Computed example of a mutant assay.
Amino acid sequence: MKIAIISVSNEGQKLAFKIKEKLDNDSTVIKTDLYHKNVKKYFPILFNEYDAIIAIMASGILIRSIAPLVESKVSDPAVLNIDDKGNFVISALSGHIGGANKFAKKIAGLINAAPVITTSTDVNSKLGIDVLARDLYLSINNTKEILFFNKAILDEKQITFTLNPNKNFDYLFEYLNNNTLEMHVSFFYSPEVNEDEICIALDNHEIILKEKKLVVGIGCRRGKKCSEIYEGLISSIGDLNIDKSRINMLSSAEIKNDEHGILELSDKLNIPVNFVEMDKLKLFKSKDIEKSEFVYSKFGIYGVCEPSALITAGFDSKLIYKKTSYDGVTISIAVSK
């Protein structure tokens, strides 16, 4: 997640620095940038450049500033509103697909504030279909049907999930079993459903959730054991609250294609690994990756795990877990658009 924090007062700016300091140590936060005053100039930029905006200001200023920019729950960034004293963190926009509700709870926990959530499913302890899709990195084929299914969930109707019997959906079952919010579901299996899709139906209404490509990028020192790489991977996906069965691919640099630990891990998890050609890594550019001068001095590339994950995930993919080190192993995670 790429985050912008914008403040208008001196007290708000102090709070912004405090929040940034905490977020900079979070591997699920790719970057956090600070902006101060001049909200009319900055908000149009922030809406296009960031996944989430934290606005430390009066709600009236925020509403008037973003009103002309709001387009759709599918594309709008998450927007949080915090008072100067940091008493309340309000999920103001894009609570579900944008992740503002969950993010509000996270920020509130960091600054000892009260989160304010107003969406119907959340306040009634129900799991929205769009929340499930966001948490499991699934795209939604017909977003117009979200309202119908969320209303059905609120009314405690049972919806059906149809899955392909040849696909491992442990990540879905784990998520539903561990979630504190309620959703009444019955499961059916059919080979007619694509392996990377979940077909959800009720009363002649249907919605398809499709897996985005989730890629774990791996870098490591020579001779690292499979068990050591596995520990780093499990720790990383644990931070994202996803099961290993949700991973679609592993990736690393071409120079690692004989690394037994990575190859063994691929076999152990039954997940294919893509070794990205060095020429592609040398040409790849992204302002979101961490550049390593040490790696560049040895191999002529600025990194392994982050660029290989992004290249493997495909055009317009993004990092959801930045390069994190685990005793000689580096892990990053990218997701396709």
Rank of each mutant, 00 (worst) to 15 (best):
4 A>D: 00
4 A>K: 04
6 I>H: 12
8 V>Y: 11
11 E>V: 07
14 K>I: 03
15 L>N: 04
18 K>Q: 14
18 K>P: 03
23 L>K: 11
23 L>E: 11
26 D>P: 08
27 S>W: 01
28 T>N: 12
31 K>Q: 06
33 D>V: 11
35 Y>F: 15
35 Y>I: 00
44 P>F: 06
46 L>Q: 08
54 I>H: 14
56 I>Y: 01
58 A>P: 08
62 L>I: 04
66 I>W: 09
76 D>C: 02
77 P>K: 08
78 A>N: 09
80 L>P: 00
84 D>E: 12
89 V>Y: 11
91 S>L: 01
93 L>K: 09
96 H>N: 10
99 G>R: 07
102 K>P: 09
104 A>M: 00
106 K>E: 15
108 A>H: 05
108 A>Y: 06
109 G>V: 02
109 G>L: 00
109 G>T: 01
115 P>G: 04
117 I>G: 06
120 S>R: 08
125 S>H: 14
127 L>T: 04
130 D>F: 00
130 D>V: 01
133 A>G: 07
143 T>P: 12
145 E>R: 11
147 L>Q: 14
147 L>H: 13
149 F>R: 03
152 A>C: 12
152 A>Q: 11
156 E>L: 13
157 K>G: 10
161 F>W: 03
161 F>K: 02
163 L>W: 02
169 F>G: 05
169 F>C: 09
173 F>C: 03
173 F>V: 10
175 Y>R: 03
182 E>A: 13
185 V>S: 05
190 S>Y: 03
193 V>A: 02
194 N>I: 12
197 E>G: 00
203 D>F: 09
207 I>K: 00
208 I>R: 01
208 I>C: 02
210 K>Q: 13
217 G>P: 06
218 I>F: 09
219 G>I: 05
220 C>N: 01
221 R>S: 15
224 K>L: 06
228 E>K: 11
237 I>H: 06
240 L>E: 12
243 D>E: 08
246 R>Q: 04
254 E>M: 06
254 E>R: 14
259 E>Y: 00
260 H>P: 13
264 E>Q: 15
268 K>H: 15
276 V>D: 02
276 V>H: 04
277 E>V: 10
277 E>N: 15
282 K>E: 10
288 D>G: 02
289 I>C: 09
290 E>W: 08
290 E>P: 11
294 F>V: 09
296 Y>V: 07
297 S>Q: 07
300 G>R: 01
303 G>F: 04
311 I>T: 05
316 D>V: 06
318 K>F: 11
321 Y>G: 08
324 T>M: 04
325 S>M: 12
326 Y>I: 02
328 G>P: 03
329 V>W: 14
332 S>P: 02
